[in-house]
Amino acid sequence: MLKSFADLSTPLVADACVRAGVPLRVVPPGIGAVVGGHRIAGRVLPVRHYGSVDVFLEAFGRAEPDDVLVIDNGGRRDEACVGDLAVLEAQATGVAGVVIWGLHRDSPELAAIGLPVFSYGSYPPGPVRLDEREPEALESARFGPHLVSADDIVFGDEDGVLFVAAERADEVLATAHRIRDTEREQARRIGAGETLRRQTAFDDYLARRAADPAYTFRRHLRRIGGAIEE
């Protein structure tokens, strides 16, 4: 999956979801990689954190190669739920990355380990609580407004993180590649002196909109094969 995502981006995947009619499930803004430039793409390995690392160790027992551990820590800002030992164990298990709805710690060690880790930032203290575990602890994870499971694929890069249902992932990636090709060609033509207004027949769009106020720019782009808004 990471190979298929290698020359794409989360904005392209998001646009592809819109075009393909796939629910757009983007995590709340602010999440980022501990090491700039790291990217992730893989099947979700969900886990809910309750204050103890044992739930992570149990999740690793269910991991498939190149899964991405997605941790539901409720978006908490008062504790870091992942540090160097958990990430080392993830790497040893064959997990391709870690995405945390919450915070991490041990930033220099995580950078040295090299496994992609995405979170909302760093915070020195670990958890000092131990909450009651839910039955779904290893079946699904919440991330902002979204509930994800092993039936989902997670994508992440410098623009953020989003989830796509596994059964639609190939379709979404194929659409994203088509959008990328269109946009690259548009960028090439701008560099060659052909403005985007000319490429998109913008004067024609304005004339059509004047005659039909319901004629939108997105409809116009679809008619002429453009991609700038998707």
Rank of each mutant, 00 (worst) to 15 (best):
V161N: 01
R62F: 13
H49L: 15
G225C: 02
D181R: 12
I228Q: 14
E79M: 15
P124E: 11
G191E: 13
T93H: 14
R197D: 14
R62A: 11
E109W: 11
G83Q: 06
R219N: 07
L8G: 07
K3M: 13
E64Q: 13
V47F: 06
S52C: 09
I224Y: 13
G160E: 06
V164E: 09
D204V: 13
G94W: 11
P46G: 09
T182A: 13
L103H: 04
L221N: 06
A192H: 09
E64D: 15
G193Q: 07
P124G: 03
G21E: 03
R189P: 01
R19P: 00
G36T: 12
V98I: 07
F60R: 04
Q199S: 09
F60A: 02
E79K: 13
I153G: 05
A207P: 00
D7V: 08
V154C: 05
R222Y: 06
D151L: 11
N73T: 08
R39F: 10
L206K: 10
T195H: 02
H146S: 04
R197C: 04
A86H: 12
G42W: 02
G37P: 13
R223P: 00
P23L: 02
R219E: 15
A16R: 05
A86I: 10
I179D: 01
V53P: 12
E132C: 02
L147Q: 14
G144Y: 06
A137I: 02
R62P: 00
R198Q: 15
P127C: 10
V82E: 07
I179F: 01
G36F: 13
R105Q: 05
I153L: 12
T200Q: 15
F56P: 02
F60E: 00
G97W: 04
A6G: 07
G94V: 04
V18Q: 14
L12I: 01
P29Y: 10
A41P: 02
S4K: 15
G225P: 06
A63S: 14
L206W: 04
V53S: 15
D15M: 08
D152W: 08
D152A: 05
G74L: 06
R77F: 09
L12D: 07
D204A: 15
V55W: 10
Y215M: 03
D181N: 07
P213L: 03
E167P: 01
V47S: 03
P11V: 06
A192G: 07
R197P: 00
D54L: 12
A33T: 05
A92Y: 12
D131R: 15
L138Y: 11
A166M: 03
F202K: 01
T10R: 10
G51R: 06
L173V: 15
L196M: 12
G32P: 08
V35L: 14
V87A: 12
D78M: 09
R178D: 12
R129L: 10
R19G: 00
V87L: 07
L110T: 01
T93Y: 05
R62Y: 11
L103W: 00
I179E: 04
S4I: 00
E158W: 03
E64T: 08
L69F: 08
